[in-house]
Simulated scan of single mutants.
Amino acid sequence: MNIYGSTISLLERGLDFSSVKGKAISQNIANVDTPNYKAKKVSFNDLLIEAKTNPINAYRTNERHMDFTSKVSQPGVSNSSNFRYRNDGNGVDMDKEQADLAANQIYYNALVDRLNGKFNTLQNVIKGGR
């Protein structure tokens, strides 16, 4: 019996996305002085657009089965290959990376707070409201 429906699994996926984004931002900050390093970005919207535009064929056991359009992919991590921020070819803008890191931390903390609320509610129900 699933008490919360898909809420906890959606919060988990949000935490996964935030973790991948945090790793990409950390790599960008760590390589701020590396010549020819291209900044990485993580975008959920790009992943959704890619999934809509790139159909794949499903394994069908009968010709009457319908095809579906879906694509299994890694979270939308991509390199900004055309952008050069400095003369040495480095594409990392430190101010933007720090702002993205702060925004990602706020997003992560909000998800953790919501998840804690769900678990506290469940714990309250188990204890009988005491």
Results as ranks from 00 to 15, higher is better:
Asn124Asp: 02
Val32Trp: 10
Thr7Asp: 00
Ala110Thr: 15
Lys96Asp: 13
Ala39Val: 07
Ser18Lys: 02
Glu97Lys: 11
Ile126Asp: 03
Lys127Gln: 13
Ser6Lys: 06
Leu111Val: 11
Pro75Met: 09
Ser19Glu: 08
Lys71Ile: 05
Ser70Gln: 03
Gln98Phe: 15
Lys38Asn: 07
Lys71Asn: 02
Asp88Ser: 01
Asn36Cys: 07
Gln123Asn: 03
Ser6Cys: 04
Ile25Asp: 03
Arg13Gln: 02
Lys118Ala: 04
Arg130Val: 01
Ala51Glu: 05
Asp93Met: 04
Val32Glu: 11
Val32Asn: 09
Gln105Ala: 15
Val72Trp: 00
Ala39Tyr: 07
Ser19Gly: 12
Ser80Cys: 06
Arg86Gly: 01
Ser81Asp: 15
Lys23Thr: 01
Lys118Arg: 13
Ile25Val: 08
Asp93Asn: 09
Val42Leu: 00
Gly5Ala: 07
Gly89Ala: 00
Arg130Trp: 00
Tyr4Trp: 06
Ile49Val: 05
Arg60Ile: 02
Ile49His: 01
Ile8Leu: 11
Lys96Gln: 15
Asn120Ala: 11
Thr7Gln: 04
Gly14Lys: 05
Gly14Ser: 14
Thr121Lys: 03
Phe44Cys: 08
Gly91Thr: 02
Ser18Gly: 10
Leu115Glu: 03
Glu12Phe: 01
Lys38Arg: 15
Asn82Ala: 12
Lys23Ser: 09
Asn87Gln: 02
Gly117Ile: 12
Asn124Glu: 01
Asp93Ile: 10
Ile25Met: 04
Ala39Met: 13
Phe119Asn: 03
Asn116Tyr: 02
Pro55Glu: 05
Ser78Ala: 15
Gln27Leu: 12
Ser80Thr: 05
Gln74Cys: 01
Asp46His: 01
Ile56Ala: 07
Ala51Arg: 13
Ser19Gln: 14
Ala58Cys: 03
Leu15Asp: 03
Arg86Tyr: 13
Gln123Phe: 06
Ala58Ser: 05
Asn82Glu: 10
Arg64Asn: 08
Ala39Glu: 08
Phe68Val: 11
Ser6Tyr: 08
Gly89Ser: 00
Asn54Thr: 06
Ile106Phe: 15
Leu115Lys: 07
Arg64Thr: 06
Asn82Val: 06
Asn79Ser: 11
Ala102Lys: 12
Ser26Trp: 14
Asn79Leu: 11
Thr61Pro: 01
Val92Asn: 02
Ile56Pro: 01
Tyr59Ala: 12
Ala39Arg: 14
Asn36Gln: 10
Lys52Ala: 12
Val42Asp: 05
Thr61Gly: 07
Arg64His: 08
Asn36Met: 12
Gln27Met: 14
Leu10Arg: 08
Lys96Tyr: 10
Leu15Met: 10
Arg84Thr: 00
Asn79Tyr: 14
Asn45Lys: 14
Ala51Phe: 08
Ser81Met: 14
Asp93Arg: 06
Asp16Tyr: 04
Gln27Gly: 09
Leu10Gln: 09
Ala51Ser: 12
Lys96Ser: 08
Asp16His: 04
Lys38Ile: 04
Thr61Glu: 05
Ile126His: 01
Val20Pro: 03
Val32Phe: 05
Leu15Trp: 04
Met66Cys: 08
Asn36His: 12
Arg60Asp: 07
Phe83Gln: 13
Arg114Gly: 14
Leu10Glu: 11
Arg60Pro: 09
Leu115Met: 11
Asn2Trp: 05
Lys41Cys: 00
Val112Ser: 09
